[in-house]
Structure formats: C-alpha cells, structure tokens
Computed example of a mutant assay.
Amino acid sequence: MQRAMRLLETVAGHEYGAPAKQLAREAGLALPTTYHLLRTLVHEGYLRRDKGLFFLGEAAERLSSSGAQQKRRSTVVDTLTRWREMIGVPVYYAVYREGEIDVVCASDAPGHAGAPEWADFRETGHAHAVGQCLLSQLDEEARRDHLDRHPVRPVTPYTVRDEHSLLRRLERTRRGELVIERQEYALGTVCAAIPITVGSAAATMAISVPVHQDDRLLPAAQRLQAEMDRMVGTLTLSISI
C-alpha cells in the first residue's frame, strides 16, 4: 500500500506524464515492482497509460477532489467552533444549493444546544432566519420556484402567515442586512442570520439564543459579522463545499 501511494505521488508530480523507468527511479522502487504496481493501478483506474507514459486516472482525481472538499469542510467546522467559543452562542453555516436549503454544519455552545430541527429545515425556509436570509438573496423567479415547492405554512403561532406577507418582508430586506426571526420556527428560540453572497451563490452564517436572552442576539450577530468580514476569503472558498 505504501509503495503504491509513493508511486501515485510520483506520477502526480509529472503533469505531462512519465515512463515506468523514470517513475521507478524517482519512487525508489525496483523496476519489476514498479511494473506490477503500475499494471494494478491502471486496472483500478487510479492511473492511465498513454504512449508509454503514465498519468493520474479518474479514480485518483476523484480522491483528490474528495480530499480537497473534506479539507474545506474541516476549515469551516474549525472556524465555526472558534466563533462559537468567542461569542458563546450556537453558530450555523448554510448554503442554497440545487434549489434547496442545506445546513452544512453547526456548532453548539456549551450548555446551550442549537435550535432543534423539529420540522424539516428545507421545507420550512419561510419560518427560520437561515431560510429567510437565503431566500432574500435569490432572484424573484428562484424565490417563487422555491415557495411553489415548499409552500408557506404555520410552524409556530409566530410564523409569517402567508406567501404574500413573506415576499413583502423579503423584498424589504436590503442587501447585506441581518435577518432576525423570533420564535417563528422554534418556540423559545430567537435567531439572526448574516447573508454571504459570492457571485450567484447564496450562503449564510447564523446564530441562535433562548428567547429570554433576546438582548444578546443583536450584539452577538454584529460581533460575528465583524469576524466574518475579516475572513471573507475563507468563507468565499468554503461556499463550494
């Protein structure tokens, strides 16, 4: 296994391919061993051979892509954990992807779990700050398409009552403005979401606190927004995870 990985790493260092003898020399492997490993790796799709030269195959490229994705996700998780420890409230990161709301990751604060997902987040975007923030970043056509698939319905006694009222609220939300929601999705919980827009991608970072700590919500959201402004490059990269 180690020899195969060493050989893959050696091939990866040659953008325009390399012959078996050169790969054996650079990887420090015996030539018969190299030929055996190359045949196996080509058969499994990790390498491909063209005119006597070896290149990375589709399977290796998928591994590379998956590894990069995991690294980006780990960066987001670490960032959320640091912000949660700094601010002392649960922090959430969500994106709008392929027509659906996707809460990528969340970091709960000690002694204060985040809002429980007691109703499907994708179907209740009209009710929570995360969904409202993402919907406010969409164009009118995409927004109406989402609401056609996930109609406005009561989730708590405080939920926006109908689609017309929701659309009016979203239209009044200015670009880059905080979205605040109080007990519309979960009784006893208030939330704030900060929009992140990069090109056509819509994303948000959000926080929640118990309703009896409502006075903490806005200061915590403003502090998070300031931290986000200092890390805009990291957030931009991470939207693709």
Rank of each mutant, 00 (worst) to 15 (best):
E26I: 08
E26Q: 13
E26C: 08
A27Y: 04
A27E: 04
G28M: 02
G28F: 04
A30V: 10
A30Y: 07
A30P: 09
A30C: 08
L31R: 06
L31T: 13
P32L: 07
P32R: 01
P32N: 10
P32W: 04
P32C: 08
P32E: 10
T33C: 08
T33G: 10
T34P: 04
T34H: 02
T34I: 06
Y35R: 02
Y35T: 01
H36E: 15
H36C: 10
L38S: 06
L38Y: 05
R39T: 13
T40N: 09
T40S: 12
V42L: 08
V42S: 14
H43N: 12
H43T: 12
H43C: 10
G45Y: 05
G45T: 06
G45Q: 04
G45I: 07
Y46M: 09
Y46K: 09
Y46I: 01
L47K: 01
L47T: 06
L47D: 04
L47W: 03
L47Y: 04
R48C: 11
R49Q: 15
R49V: 12
D50R: 12
D50N: 12
K51I: 08
G52D: 07
G52M: 02
G52C: 07
L53V: 11
F54K: 02
F54A: 06
F55R: 00
F55T: 04
L56R: 00
L56V: 04
G57R: 02
G57V: 06
G57D: 07
G57W: 03
A59W: 02
E61W: 05
E61D: 12
E61S: 13
E61A: 14
R62D: 11
L63D: 15
L63K: 10
L63C: 12
S65T: 14
S65I: 12
S65E: 15
S66H: 13
S66K: 11
G67T: 07
G67H: 11
G67A: 10
A68V: 09
A68D: 13
A68Y: 10
Q69H: 14
Q69N: 14
Q70N: 10
Q70L: 10
Q70W: 09
S74K: 11
S74D: 13
V77R: 01
D78R: 09
T79A: 15
L80D: 00
L80W: 01
T81V: 11
T81M: 09
T81D: 11
R82W: 09
W83P: 01
R84P: 07
R84T: 15
E85F: 03
M86T: 15
I87Q: 03
G88K: 07
G88H: 06
G88I: 05
V89K: 09
V89N: 08
V89S: 13
P90M: 03
V91W: 00
V91P: 06
Y92S: 05
Y92A: 02
Y93M: 01
Y93N: 00
Y93C: 00
A94E: 06
Y96V: 02
Y96W: 11
R97F: 14
E98K: 09
E98Y: 11
E98F: 10
G99Q: 00
G99C: 00
G99P: 03
E100T: 07
E100G: 03
I101Q: 01
I101F: 09
I101P: 02
D102A: 08
V104E: 05
